[in-house]
Design a protein around this nucleic acid. Structure first.
Lengths: 343, 343
DNA sequence: GTGAAAGCGCTAACAG
DNA sequence: CTGTTAGCGCTTTCAC
């Protein structure tokens, strides 16, 4: 491995000077700097970031913990984070927890060992205590979609307002008369928010009685498919699914059994993942700005890293109702709003 | 930051001994080791991997470069890689190149600076010369889906045999009489393979004349949707789309314009991404073992890192034809084969 | 079984 | 402007 020592020798100067030259610090004559730079280039010198980090106590690495990178929601957030940190020459250690709390803890430990400058945590299960190691190691933390602790920054999509808009649309515009809600795990923060918003909105509209029942299921395609016959027994004219994947499962069941969407059953989802606009009955849903959310998290983290006096802050992004065909009303396929599938 | 020095002091021993104890090396009395371990635990000591790496010249980090982490194909590979390296306590620096060759080069530079032990490269554009920095830095490289250089390991899905199976199915089982192919970029290795396999198979079956035309498009949903009216002018009874996303776009156009799939037009895709089984006309496609591919790449890389004498090797995974509804033939939705969406 | 000493590659004071 | 010195936290000979 070729080090600054080697190139110092080649130039007949000391390592300190080489370091200054390479890092663009002042205090090196132009001629010398040029010489050093060209030699470094010539011999293919690669700076050892880690050795540098040892002394500056800045590794220029951050950690990103996600429940499952194959879930497009998290993938887009990751992309947003990456887009920011990349600009600053900061590396991103990706930790795919695979929805396991045990894995999360192991990754936290590992991130501490790597002395990352900060971490972005997307976890539905992590508790305040789990994040203690970061605090002790003076590693900045930004939480996403889950306000784990008061004294930590958190960026999130405002689930409450998104559901309010959606339910209001369903009741006042598409004239839903009886509704069923298909929920995921009741202990997940975002789910709680969404359910609360749903109930509050119905109440506000004086329509509490139209909510027939709330089902709690494994919130995936299969779960949506399989709960559908059950919920159909209640003969609702609409379903609000906790996320798009569940909604797609419900629509698939309907398609397979001759139930027309939206004529026989209106279906709404949440998230606006790519598939939402691609299925035969495009989904009315709520668009979350995932990419932007990742960017916001990254920016906040970098600010806290660069300015340790900075206070933690909460950022809330507002989602946007996307009316397509699955709840009725006009709809035409168009590709104008690219951002809907890419953010 | 608390270091082995601190805990050495607490125990009245030297840092060397603490190091030995912590790393489970022999040459420390049981009593002492226990004491050291317990104190380390007590004071919340976190080993500095990077400082250790400086001397062992092993950082226990690898780099993973992907074109786009929001593409499920790459996300599943990333998950596979992660699942392996995680077990070995190795960190994964994720580099999302955003399909830009310039970005790729910057990431290569960066990974060299971080002195990663190895890299896994998924790139359709990278050339042999681009990877030279890794060679010079003695960083092991494994390529995925693109045999960039003879002297580098490469793991890939065998695109050729997958397309052969699919085309043979379409011609002999679903009795396709006229076919259109919708391709992506002609200079991408996997695309070339697929197109070649398609032509070879038709020839082998003595059906070369049924191939009406090959379209070259931007290989995404919108591209598929927009090319459909054009290809319909040729009145084919089947389309082979270069990937599932394109196929879904084609099917969406058909749905919007009263063209029945598969009755009026048979549609086949490639990749078997999650959406393939979720749309109203589930897609006949070829399943690629993405997760397993990532695992294979990671295993190969770790072996080369741990045993530098190991020769580079080529690994080819065989894909599997998945017959669903979009080309005709029997089909029933089922959830038995979970692995199809998760690998 | 434990300690002393050297050094990985780099940066940051402080001199000159 | 450039050199000297010290040291980040850790591992690893080589002594004892």
């Amino acid at each position: 491995m070729i080090s600054i020592k080697d190139i110092a020798q080649s130039c007949g100067v000391t390592p300190a000077t080489v370091s200054r030259a390479l890092n663009g610090q002042k205090g090196v004559s132009d001629a010398l700097r040029e010489k050093i730079l060209s030699i470094a280039e010539e011999v293919g010198y690669k700076k050892n970031q880690l050795a540098a980090g040892l002394i500056t106590s800045r590794t220029n690495m951050i950690g990103l913990l996600v429940p499952d990178i194959t879930n497009p929601y998290y993938a887009f957030i990751a992309k947003g984070v990456s887009s920011i940190v990349e600009q600053h020459g900061i590396g991103m250690l990706l930790c795919n927890a695979d929805r396991s709390a045990t894995n999360e803890l192991r990754f936290f430990q590992m991130l501490c060992n790597y002395k990352v400058d900060g971490v972005i945590i997307i976890s539905v299960t992590a508790k305040k205590e789990d994040l203690l190691p970061f605090k002790n190691s003076n590693i900045k933390v930004v939480c996403v979609d889950n306000p784990i602790s008061k004294d930590l920054s958190c960026v999130m999509n405002d689930n409450y307002s998104g559901v309010c808009d959606l339910i209001e649309h369903m009741v006042t515009v598409t004239k839903v008369k009886s509704l069923v809600v298909v929920m995921g795990y009741p202990d997940v923060y975002t789910n709680q928010q969404r359910l609360r918003a749903c109930k509050d909105t119905l109440e506000k509209l004086g329509s509490s009685e139209i909510l027939l029942k709330t089902f709690f299921i494994e919130p995936d395609y299969e779960g949506g498919y399989q709960v559908t016959p059950e919920l159909l027994k209640l003969e609702p004219d609409a379903v609000f699914a906790i996320n798009d994947t569940v909604a797609v499962g419900i629509i698939a069941y309907c398609h397979d059994h001759g139930i027309r969407v939206p004529e026989d059953l209106k279906v709404a989802g949440y998230d606006d993942i790519g598939i939402a606009s691609m299925i035969s009955v495009p989904l009315t849903t709520v668009h979350q700005r995932k990419f932007v959310l990742g960017q916001a998290a990254a920016r906040q983290l970098l600010q806290e890293i660069n300015d340790p006096t900075r206070e933690p802050s909460k950022v809330e992004l507002f989602p946007k109702l996307v009316v397509r065909a699955s709840c009725g009303e006009e709809f035409e396929r168009n590709f104008k709003s690219k951002d809907q599938s890419s953010t």
